[in-house]
Amino acid sequence: MFGYVRAFKPQMKVCEYEIYKAVYCGLCKKMGKEFGFFSRMTLSYDFTFLALMNMALNSFMISYNEERCIAHPQKKSMCLKADHALDYSADAAIILIWHKLHDDLADKGAKGKIAAFCILPFLKKGYKKAKGRYNALANDIESLMKEQKLVEKETDSSFDMYCEPSSKMMEEIASYLSDDIDQKKILGKFGYYIGRYIYICDALDDLRNDCKKGNFNPLKIKFKFEKKELADEEFQKARDYCLESINLTMAELAENYVKLDQKHFKPINDNIVYLGMKNTFNLIYNERYNKKEKNKHNNK
């Protein structure tokens, strides 16, 4: 959906990067098999992290084999094969995307509407399947999406209040990763801060665009931006506020992260939590997080 939660490749071991890619590949294939071809196009790195957390906390039987991929048909690459490790991430992904696209259909500009309108029918069957397995989660996400929309209609809420529903969505999603009551609580908090991180990143990333088009943006309200073009000082003010908010968020995220009982893949998750997420925000902070730069940084 957003893809802000991703690894920082320059600091990864080659074998870790191979695994990371293999998980992404495996998840993509899983979604294709389970929910149809179009669901694969909606996959983002956020859910790769969810799958990795799942595999870190719970022991699954997994294996790797070499497979071809439609995006890069010329070469074979490592792909994760697992019976159950990817199930939950795929389900959570389709549930979240379904509601997100529904939201776009109602709110976004023409482009977003058309995209959502075209993809949604292909996802319906998949969504129903996933909802059958995680009915409570699907309902919670749906009501939180509504809450987010409601809170964004208000013009005098605090920045934290705008973050709340989105953060809660990730809280719900993350808390399913363990059956242990204590771990569940920690995972919930951990997820909350992941959601908060994503929301703040998204707000800053879209700020200039939202100003231009007159869309809602929590930063616009916080700093009372009314012009269509943001002056550099104004943007500076907003991004520094975001930097502090992100740092506060990441510190709390880390407090909960260290309490998680990870049995596998810890170095990869460490990379994502301590380096990757901050790197993504830095790119946004410096306004270099457009498609090209992002790919340069990760795929070169």
Partner: peptide, 8 residues
């Protein structure tokens, strides 16, 4: 924390 500290 605002300065970027992260536990662990």
């Amino acid at each position: 924390n605002r300065g970027g500290y992260m536990n662990g």
